[in-house]
Computed example of a mutant assay.
Amino acid sequence: MTLRISLRDGEKLIVNGAVLRAIGRTDLCVENSVSLLRGREVMSPDDAVTPARRLYYACMIAYIDPHGATAHHDEIVRYLHDLLGALEAPEAKAACASFARKVATGDFYRALADCRALIDYEAAAIGRTAPQVAQAAA
């Protein structure tokens, strides 16, 4: 199955751990199985500052390093455990369960999609609690 990817000038792409950058508008056809992430899907270690973001980063590293994925498994499990302890909403816990199933089968790319939903949920929850914390401090 061929995958066609269009990159904007300067956009980065990670392919099996190698970072590539487009010079000019670039179209690529990937004709075999690889681990790849577009620049907008890549998170830097400095951005992994919340439980959901740390989980995303650990899963992303496991995905782009398929030979070392098992080495990252304990970290993923630890971050997932931390996140589950902080969540209350049933839909967020369901996203965690879906994430765990995908990680267990080695489907890290699809697990990242669940993690992006968890990052959105976490941001919304922090937004809801920030006014309460400010009111309590006043």
Rank of each mutant, 00 (worst) to 15 (best):
C96Q: 03
R40C: 07
G39Q: 02
D9W: 04
K102T: 06
V133T: 12
A130Q: 15
A62I: 01
H72D: 13
E91P: 13
L55R: 03
S44G: 06
A69T: 12
Q135M: 14
Q132F: 15
L87R: 01
Y56L: 05
A86Q: 10
E75H: 04
C115F: 02
S98V: 01
M1L: 05
P90V: 14
C96D: 07
T129V: 15
Y109V: 03
A89R: 10
E31I: 09
T50Y: 02
V30H: 04
D107C: 07
R21F: 04
A124W: 08
A111L: 02
A95C: 14
H67M: 07
A111V: 00
M60H: 06
R8T: 12
V30N: 01
D107I: 09
A124T: 01
A62H: 03
A22C: 12
D27P: 10
D46A: 08
A123K: 01
C115D: 02
R78S: 05
H81P: 00
R38C: 07
T2F: 08
L28G: 04
R110G: 11
G39E: 06
L20N: 02
A137P: 01
A62F: 01
V42F: 10
P51N: 08
D114N: 03
A123M: 07
G85I: 00
P90F: 12
A113S: 07
I23L: 09
V42E: 15
C29F: 06
A111I: 00
Q135E: 13
R4E: 07
L7T: 01
A58Q: 10
V103G: 00
N32G: 14
L55T: 01
A71K: 10
D82A: 03
T105N: 12
A138K: 08
S33G: 11
A95K: 15
A124Q: 07
A138G: 14
Y121P: 02
G10W: 06
R110Y: 12
L118M: 10
D27F: 00
A89F: 10
A134W: 14
Q135H: 14
A124C: 09
V49K: 13
A124P: 05
Y79C: 09
I23M: 03
Q135N: 09
A62M: 12
D46H: 07
A69Y: 01
I23W: 08
A69I: 07
L3T: 06
R4G: 03
P131T: 15
D82K: 13
C29Y: 14
Y57S: 08
L87P: 08
R21I: 05
R21C: 15
T129K: 08
S33L: 15
L84M: 12
A100H: 09
R128Q: 09
C59N: 08
